[in-house]
Design a protein around this nucleic acid. Structure first.
Length: 342
DNA sequence: TGGATGGCGTCGTGCCTGAA
DNA sequence: TTCAGGCACGACGCCATCCA
């Protein structure tokens, strides 16, 4: 059995025309009579010809493949970003080459090398952690544009699309204040996290703006281990019983805070139904899950525009590939809306 | 060993051919 | 003479092969 791939030459021979005529018929750009075009199409159908994308890439010097480096696909924020990237890529007939870098520089470099070697048209990175001038210069050498689609990014040498963490924290804090909360704590995240720093900035500025007392010990760093968060929250509420609301850095913290508050006998209430006299705690979290997994927990969530970050990053990279040489931009996307799950 | 060459598949451009 | 239809050729990047 002959398994040789059908090429444009085979189609041309079968149709009794030249390779160029087949090419013109395929693109619809040339001066081809309907009769000739029909003849070519019949041969294509009969032989089962499929355009060789690799050869077309070779000819056009465009692969139509966009590289995506995500730190961790199991993190809901990044899987949503990837989904947004993929969603917009589909509308532009682009393919996404997804790689996962973890938290290691070596792995990030390996992903970058793979994408460069593969000949992608552009690269979207889900974290600005490992970006530097050297990498940008290297990609510029290969004429591969790069866009950062991350929660936060300190590096300013490239286009950055990210959620407005400060505004999200401001909305969360204001929502609590407007519902009668005056003793608000912030829980979660690691001290080196830029996302956390931005959110804490929004939280602090809003507290000060409303003339409420600010206490640095009410900003608590946690890891993502449930038992650890539960213990921290229960200890904290023991120590500061007047705290009526907690802003939670992520969904894991919200869940831990919920269980921690229950542990010391507090009642968890939705923000709107808060009553100071019932030892109730209101919880507001930044939702990076976007699912209904925690629907039973009375936590108000601020939704993160992760998918929009992905879509906008893809739009930007396509602009860059098309030759947009304007200065790098930092685009912050507003958080979605307050979503009561209680 | 290293440089030159050809082949892979596709497609745009320039040019030739033939009909009206 | 004009114009539609079709053809030959070159270029793209990489790799294998050949030859000095």
């Amino acid at each position: 059995m002959n398994l040789r791939k059908i090429t444009i030459t085979d189609v041309a021979k079968h149709a009794g025309v030249s390779v160029t005529t087949v090419s013109l018929a395929l693109s619809g750009k040339g001066r081809i009579s309907q009769k000739t075009a029909d003849k070519v199409n019949e041969s294509i159908e009969e032989l089962g010809y499929v355009r060789n994308q690799q050869a077309a890439s070779l000819r056009d010097n465009i692969s139509n493949v966009i590289g995506l480096i995500i730190p961790d696909l199991t993190e809901p924020f990044y899987s949503e970003v990837a989904s947004g990237v993929s969603q917009y890529a589909k509308t532009q007939n682009k393919i996404v080459f997804l790689t996962q870098s973890g938290n290691s520089r070596e792995e990030f470099d390996r992903c970058l090398d793979s994408l460069i070697n593969y000949g992608v048209d552009g690269i979207i990175v889900g974290s600005g952690k490992f970006l530097n001038d050297e990498i940008v210069a290297r990609l510029a050498h290969y004429q591969i544009p790069i866009v950062c689609a991350a929660r936060a990014c300190e590096f300013a040498g490239i286009d950055v699309i990210r959620p407005d963490n400060t505004l999200a924290a401001k909305i969360a804090t204001e929502h609590l204040i407007n519902n009668g909360h005056h003793q608000i704590a912030y829980f979660g995240g690691a001290s080196h996290s830029l996302t956390r720093a931005e959110r804490i900035g929004g939280y602090c500025s809003t507290i000060i703006q409303y003339g409420l007392p600010f206490r640095s010990e009410w900003i608590v760093e946690t890891n993502n281990k449930q038992q650890h968060i539960i213990q921290q929250v229960s200890d904290f509420l023991h120590q500061y019983p007047k705290v009526s609301a907690i802003i939670c850095h992520n969904t894991a913290t919200a869940l831990g805070a919920y269980l921690g508050a229950l542990k010391i006998g507090s009642t968890i209430t939705s923000v709107d139904n808060y009553s100071y006299f019932n030892q109730e705690i209101a919880l507001v979290g930044f939702d990076d899950i976007g699912s209904e997994a925690l629907y039973d927990i009375p936590v108000t969530f601020i939704t993160q525009p992760a998918r929009e970050v992905g879509i906008n990053a893809m739009m930007k990279i396509i602009q860059r590939i098309s030759g947009d040489n304007s200065l790098p931009q930092s685009v912050t996307l507003s958080p979605g809306f307050l979503r009561d799950k209680g």
